[in-house]
Every structure is written in structure tokens, then in C-alpha cells.
């Protein structure tokens, strides 16, 4: 079943006085099946962040549409969009985005409290997730008291506690050391095997090699995509590296399948 469908997405930024137009995205189309773990790769300025903002309905596209579970994000009014985001999307960010005014527990509860859930229910939902992510004993601590890896686990707990249809991750390993990164990526893998659909934006080859499919963005367009198939993480790593080399050396594009070398 197709969970997310991106159709001919286009985003043009206009500078303040309309003098310059910058095309951030054009003609981007792809779809994400339920249960997929997909990575979007690209260099700085390739449009990754713009794409994520559009998928999260934090920004409006200039053209095209995004459908989540068959519902067009454009059709949702300003009033319902926050509730829609809260119920259907989970976010994990590079800089964690935990609120330092809340304890870890309250940070995780935030989306549930906003949804008006009862305290007992929140506790019930939290217990298994906290145990699963290994953060049960730091729940009462504050973000400034815990390590980067722990912060990112807390952020994941916050993202998944609402049982979102789609988990969006923006450079989740960007601020972590290699050990914490590795354990986080394993966690993503496990969550994915349990059925969680994940869409991750990254420029780390290591991170992307854990995904089931990798989309390459260049200059605002989908340049290439790579399926994992039966490859191991190491083989995937090698393939992604090769692809990036080709992109970097200015190779031509083939929308589907292999590269024309």
C-alpha cells in the first residue's frame, strides 16, 4: 500500500523584493510504501531540507502535491494542519529539538498532551517505548543533563509515541559520535522491521546504508535511486559511495535502475 505520494513537487523561493528566484525543487516525484525505510541523500543545497519541510506541511509547495495516506496536504486547512501533523507525522531532528524547559518525560509527552490525552494513558504508552529505547532511567532528567545519544533517543520516543504513519528524520546522526550513530541506526532498523515507515534525510553514507531505498537529490531534482534488495549494509555502503562519486564527477542521470557509465 502506498503511504506517501509526492507528485511533481516544485518549490521556488523568491527573494524579498522579487528580484531573484531560486528553484529549490522541481519535478520531484516518488512514492513511499507502507513499512519502507527510505533515505534521501544529497549535498548541501540539493533541496533536502525544502523537501522535508514540504512533506511535513511546514511550507507550501509552488506546484505539485503531497498525499499522505491518500489525503492531499494541500487540501488540509490551516486550522487542522497542526492536528494532522501531530497525529500522522513524527519528527526526529539533527539538533534533537528537545525543549529545555521540560524534563525528558515531559518532552516525550508533549504531543500527547497537545492531543489532550489523559495522564494514565500517556504513562501506559511511554513505559514500553522507554524500555525499548533504553531511556527508562533518564526520564526525570532535563535535556542539558544527558548525552547527545540519549537526547536523540528521547526525541525518537517523542516522535513515535503518537504511533505516526510516517517518521521523518532530518540528519538524525548529524550531531552524534560514531558509536551513538551506529546504535541509533540500528534502532531505526528495528523500528522499521516492526512496521514503522521511516523517511530519513541525510548526507551520511553510513546512515543511508541502513535504509531499504536511497533517493539521490541533485539541484532540486531526483537524480537517481538505489534499492537495497538483498544487499548487506556493507554492500549498500559501497554502492552508495560509488553512486555519490559518479554524481560528484558530473555523470548523467537515469531515472530508474543503474547508472550509465
Amino acid at each position: 500500500m502506498t503511504l506517501l505520494e509526492v507528485k511533481n513537487l516544485k518549490k521556488i523561493y523568491t527573494t524579498r523584493f522579487g528580484a531573484n528566484q531560486v528553484t529549490a525543487l522541481q519535478n520531484v516525484s516518488f512514492s513511499v510504501e507502507k513499512g519502507e525505510f527510505i533515505a534521501i541523500m544529497g549535498e548541501s543545497g540539493s533541496g533536502k531540507t525544502t523537501l522535508l519541510n514540504l512533506l511535513a506541511a511546514l511550507d507550501k509547495p509552488t506546484g505539485g502535491d503531497v498525499l499522505l495516506g491518500g489525503v492531499s496536504l494541500l487540501s488540509i486547512g490551516e486550522k487542522q494542519i497542526s492536528a494532522f501533523r501531530r497525529d500522522n507525522l513524527g519528527f526526529v531532528f539533527q539538533d534533537f529539538n528537545l525543549l529545555d524547559t521540560f524534563s525528558v518525560r515531559d518532552n516525550i509527552f508533549l504531543p500527547l498532551v497537545l492531543a489532550g490525552k489523559r495522564y494514565d494513558e500517556m504513562e501506559q504508552r511511554l513505559a514500553p517505548i522507554a524500555a525499548r529505547l533504553g531511556i527508562a532511567d533518564i526520564l526525570s532528567k532535563f535535556p542539558y543533563e544527558i548525552s547527545g545519544g540519549q537526547k536523540q533517543r528521547a526525541a525518537i520516543a517523542r516522535a513515535v509515541i503518537t504511533h505516526p504513519q510516517l517518521l521523518l528524520a532530518d540528519e538524525p546522526t548529524g550531531a552524534l559520535d560514531s558509536k551513538a550513530s551506529e546504535s541509533l541506526l540500528h534502532l531505526f532498523g528495528e523500528l522499521n522491521r516492526e512496521g514503522q515507515t521511516i523517511l530519513m534525510v541525510t548526507h551520511s553514507v553510513r546512515a543511508a546504508s541502513h535504509a531499504g531505498r536511497v533517493l539521490f537529490l541533485r539541484d532540486g531534482e531526483v537524480f537517481h535511486q538505489l534499492y537495497r534488495g538483498a544487499m548487506s549494509t556493507e554492500e549498500m555502503f559501497a554502492r552508495i559511495s560509488d553512486t555519490l562519486t559518479v554524481i560528484a564527477s558530473g555523470g548523467g542521470r537515469t531515472p530508474e535502475g543503474g547508472l550509465d557509465d
Partner: peptide, 15 residues
């Protein structure tokens, strides 16, 4: 910053 994070977690601008 706070405003920003809350919006991403699903609080509407109005709220």
C-alpha cells in the same frame, strides 16, 4: 526557538 519546535511537534500557530 521554542515556538519553532512546538510547531513541529504539532501545536498550531494559533495555539
Amino acid at each position: 526557538k521554542r515556538f519553532d519546535i512546538m510547531q513541529k511537534v504539532g501545536l498550531s500557530r494559533e495555539e
